[in-house]
């Protein structure tokens, strides 16, 4: 059986080596480039990202990557956005003024506000460190295990993942939210799924064995499809 290829979209931002190492660890064959044809060719596409939303969109535009990414979203091919790569999927962002996003998932990106914990200590922004991910409680009847058949399927409820961010996404449709995370008085969407599009605010490649389980499941999900 040949290994699936996971293409990591390189648009000049962020450390892609830890993502590459995580792919290798779970038996995926990673490729890294800014070439649109590599996105088309890959079995799985990963959109990473650290840095500013506006700069990232400019860079994607200059490299001719916006349309290829939108096409992947349409194609049904497994796709994972990480951190800024999740935020870019939204319609727009309020980071340094108004910025248009990829508009693959209707919604916005908003800034975390500094809040206080129970001991009245400020919770600093950026939010850096390990935090829990939990299934959201919706008003309508709770589905049995929302994480089934997603890359989170082997992750336990309330698992800790590693976060580094100042912004978070608010999808228009709450049903796409797979998990929420609470930081002070902020509770935000920490992972989502819409059809083939899966995205996480945390960094699974820096989240120890639990994060690797997510990569392994991403690999397994793509084999079924």
């Amino acid at each position: 059986m040949t290994s699936k290829t996971a293409h990591i979209v390189d648009y000049g931002l962020g450390n892609l080596f830890s993502i590459k190492n995580a792919c290798l660890k779970v038996g995926l064959t990673p490729t890294i480039s800014s070439l649109p044809q590599d996105i088309e060719r890959a079995d799985i596409v990963i959109l990473p990202g650290v840095g500013a939303f506006g700069d990232a969109m400019t860079s994607l535009r200059l490299k001719g990557l916006i349309e290829p990414i939108r096409e992947v979203a349409q194609s049904g091919k497994p796709f994972m956005g990480i951190c800024l790569g999740m935020q870019l999927l939204m319609t727009s962002s309020e980071e340094f003024g108004y910025n248009q996003g990829l508009n693959i998932i209707p919604g916005i990106t908003s800034k975390l506000q500094t809040t206080y914990d129970n001991d009245n200590r400020p919770l600093k922004v950026p939010h850096i460190g390990w935090n829990r991910i939990n299934t959201p409680i919706l008003k309508e009847a709770l589905e049995d295990n929302k994480w089934k058949n997603t890359p989170l399927s082997n992750i336990k409820e309330g698992e800790y993942m590693y976060f580094v961010h100042s912004y978070y996404v608010i999808p228009e449709d709450p049903k796409v939210v797979l998990s929420n995370t609470t930081y002070g008085q902020n509770t935000f969407c920490s992972s989502l799924r819409m059809n083939n599009i899966f995205a996480v605010q945390f960094h699974p490649e820096r989240s120890g064995p639990s994060g690797l389980k997510l990569y392994a499941q991403l690999n397994a999900c793509s084999k079924e499809s």
Partner: peptide, 8 residues
Amino acid sequence: TSREIFIP
């Protein structure tokens, strides 16, 4: 080490 260690 970064090939085997998946924390920051």
